[in-house]
């Protein structure tokens, strides 16, 4: 059978069922906003006994812990199914990516299994975050020399 790849792909894409973007966006907004409100609440709580900087750090650590725990007990993916980017974009998504990769690799041992695979998604985030930061740092350094 002769099939023109370009037109077939166009045809298949056109008839493919689309993601319910509006519904997904509303869910992402509500879940994402809710997580940020919790973060704000935690921050206000922690600031009663910590400096603002330490409180902010502890908020991140708390959210990371909760997301890792929910991932471990198998609940995170069920929430994320509805929340979409609402749980992905906050720091919870980073934590889930790390914890789920670690859990996934458990069967292959703790060194080359968990130890290596834990970076599957965390790796690129750290790599490009640090690289972008370094590029910015060099530019900033040059600017400080000029001024």
């Amino acid at each position: 059978m002769q099939i023109d790849k370009k037109s077939y792909r166009k045809y298949a894409d056109a008839r493919a069922q689309k993601s319910p973007c509006a519904k997904n966006c509303i869910n992402a907004f509500l879940y994402g906003g809710f997580i940020c409100v919790i973060a704000q609440g935690l921050k206000d709580l922690y600031m009663t006994f910590l400096t603002e900087k330490d409180a902010a750090t502890l908020v991140s650590v708390t959210l990371i812990f909760l997301a890792a725990l929910l991932t471990g007990i198998g609940v995170f993916d069920r929430i994320a199914k509805h929340a979409g980017a609402g749980t992905l974009v906050p720091i919870t998504g980073f934590s889930n990516a790390v914890a789920s990769s670690a859990l996934d690799a458990k069967g292959e041992g703790f060194v080359l299994g968990v130890g290596a695979k834990i970076f599957t998604i965390a790796g690129p985030v750290i790599l490009y975050g640090i690289t972008a930061g370094a590029i910015y740092g060099v530019i900033y350094y040059i600017i400080t020399l000029i001024i």
């Binding site: 993601s19 992905l88 974009v89």
Partner: peptide, 17 residues
């Protein structure tokens, strides 16, 4: 916090979809 946090998630959701 709710509005801005939610909005940043919505942008990502649109990019994914």
């Amino acid at each position: 916090a709710f509005l801005i946090g939610g909005l940043l998630c919505v942008i990502a959701q649109i990019l994914i979809d």
